[in-house]
């Protein structure tokens, strides 16, 4: 059919210049929006040399911020993994009243501004809040303390796992579960042996995303934290404080550390995607 049999053309073959143009635009855009700022962070952090950066990070307040960030993620992420697994299982594999409402509620943190999320907790647990007096009487601190930070982080990160798993589980249907039940497996056994393994890559992916957000969250945490140095400052908050004090090396050094954590997360995520063998997303 073709007049030029030497060149095999496929339907997706666009002219070379068009391809080059599209790829070029994407690369320029990525460079401007992602790579340059990221490089700038590291460049700023290392402007006075590696030693200065290390000193800035190796300061008690900065270390406390790192610790608090890791602690917050260590509580929020497992909690959300369990919650997300349960919620998506309930939604994808069962029929019950009020299901659309539950789905909407799960999406709420995505649609509400993080600042509002923080304010909600201030309203509930703050001094002037609903439980304020009772908490003071019993000497429990939620707002301007670690529990508040953890609560706010849980709030903003809880959709990630569920959102990742619900479509996956829905796509897989219920027939494997029915097969297991018809062979005498209990509900719990079926969940652990059939449902969970089928979504393990999706779960891992959701956990990584929610971890990235948990470590990076600024808005909601900023409202409930109180910015007490060495006590209630997470890394993003600490970066802001240092920056506002014109300690640019310190600010960028901590920011660089935060970026490194994000890069580790992304590398893990890529590894997870590459490691998906026979099962999981698009694998069948």
């Amino acid at each position: 059919m073709s007049a030029a049999p030497s060149r095999s053309r496929r339907a997706t073959d666009d002219p070379a210049w068009a391809k080059a143009l599209v790829i070029g635009v994407v690369l320029v855009f990525l460079a401007l929006v992602l790579i340059v700022p990221l490089a700038a962070v590291f460049a700023e952090a290392l402007r006075r040399g590696l030693d200065a950066a290390l000193v800035a990070v190796n300061n008690p307040d900065a270390l406390a911020a790192v610790k608090l960030t890791l602690l917050t993620a260590a509580i929020a992420v497992p909690f959300n993994a369990v919650f997300g697994l349960c919620a998506s299982w309930a939604i994808a594999k069962h029929e019950f009243r009020g299901k659309p409402l539950l789905i909407t509620l799960i999406d709420l943190p995505f649609s509400v501004s993080p600042v509002v999320a923080g304010l909600i907790y201030v309203l509930i647990f703050g001094m002037q809040g609903w439980f304020g007096e009772w908490l003071v009487d019993n000497d429990i601190k939620v707002i301007f303390a670690v529990p508040g930070i953890v609560l706010a982080t849980v709030f903003v990160t809880f959709p990630f796992v569920a959102r990742e798993l619900i479509p996956l589980m829905q796509e897989q249907g219920t027939s494997e579960e029915e097969a297991a039940i018809s062979m005498g497996a209990s509900g719990l056994y079926t969940f652990w042996r059939v449902t969970a393994p089928n979504v393990r890559w999706g779960l891992m992916y959701g956990v990584l995303l929610s971890n990235a957000r948990a470590m990076g969250e600024f808005g909601a945490v900023s409202v409930v934290s109180g910015h007490i140095r060495g006590l209630t400052n997470t890394m993003p908050l600490h970066v802001e404080i240092l920056y506002n004090e014109y300690d640019f090396v310190g600010a960028f050094a901590v920011a660089a550390l935060l970026c490194l954590l994000a890069v580790v997360t992304l590398v893990l995520k890529t590894a997870v995607e590459a490691a998906q063998p026979r099962t999981g997303r698009g694998g069948h």
């Binding site: 027939s175 494997e176 097969a179 297991a180 026979r278 099962t279 069948h284």
Partner: peptide, 8 residues
């Protein structure tokens, strides 16, 4: 109908 074998 679609066998529902355990994939993993």
């Amino acid at each position: 109908q679609q066998y529902a074998l355990f994939k993993h």
